[in-house]
C-alpha cells in the first residue's frame, strides 16, 4: 500500500463526508447528529473504496460490508446523541446509493426501444440494462440489509436510543 493510495483513500472518505452532509440536510436532520453522519459516511465509503480497490471485492459485497460497518457504528453514536439509529445510518448511506446505475438502466431501456428490431444493437442495450439494473438493485439491497441488521440484532438496546437515561 503506497502513500499515494492512502492519500486517495483519505480523500475518498473526506469527499464522501461532504457529500453526506449535502444530501442529508435535505432531509432536515437534528443538528447534533450531522457530524456523526458525516463521520459514518466517511468510514463507510472509504471502506468500500478499500475493498473494491485492494481486495477486488465486487461492488455489492463491498457495499454490504461498508453498510454493516456503518450499521454497527451507528449504535454507539445513536446512544451518544439520543437519536434513532436510522437517523444516523440512512444519511451516511446516501453517498453510496446507486443513483447513476439507476438512471443508466432507464437510458438502456430507452435505447433498447429505439433499436428493438435490430437484434445485434438491441442485445447490447439489453446487457446494459441488466448490468446496470442488477448493480443498482443489489447495491441498494445490500446497503439496506447491511445497515439495518446490527439494529435488528441488538433490538432490545437499539430501540431505546431516544429514551431519557435515568
Amino acid at each position: 500500500m503506497t502513500a499515494e493510495f492512502i492519500g486517495e483513500l483519505l480523500a475518498d472518505g473526506f469527499f464522501a463526508a461532504i457529500a453526506a452532509i449535502g444530501f442529508s440536510v435535505i432531509s432536515n436532520p437534528p443538528r447534533r447528529s450531522i457530524a456523526y453522519c458525516a463521520l459514518l459516511a466517511a468510514f463507510g465509503h472509504a471502506t468500500r473504496f478499500l475493498l473494491t480497490n485492494t481486495l477486488e471485492v465486487d461492488i455489492a459485497s463491498a457495499s454490504f460490508l461498508a453498510a454493516m460497518l456503518i450499521g454497527w457504528l451507528s449504535l454507539p453514536f445513536a446512544y451518544k446523541v439520543h437519536c434513532p439509529t436510522t437517523t444516523l445510518y440512512i444519511p451516511a448511506l446516501l453517498p453510496m446509493v446507486p443513483g447513476m446505475y439507476a438512471y443508466k438502466t432507464i437510458f438502456a431501456m430507452m435505447n433498447f426501444m429505439q433499436h428493438i428490431n435490430e437484434d445485434e444493437i438491441a442485445s447490447l442495450y439489453m446487457i446494459d440494462f441488466f448490468r446496470n439494473g442488477m448493480t443498482a438493485f443489489t447495491i441498494l439491497f445490500s446497503l439496506g440489509v447491511g445497515a439495518a441488521l446490527p439494529t435488528l440484532i441488538m433490538r432490545r438496546w437499539a430501540f431505546t436510543m431516544t429514551r431519557k437515561k435515568v
Binding site: S27, I90, V97, G99, M100, A102, L140, V145, A148
Partner: peptide, 22 residues
C-alpha cells in the same frame, strides 16, 4: 452525469428496503 444526482430519492429507497426485510 453527476449534475442530477442530488435528486436521487435515497431516503425512501433505503426505507423501502428496510420495510421489506422487516
Amino acid at each position: 452525469a453527476t449534475s442530477v444526482l442530488y435528486l436521487v430519492p435515497g431516503v425512501p429507497l433505503i426505507n423501502g428496503i428496510i420495510d421489506i426485510i422487516e
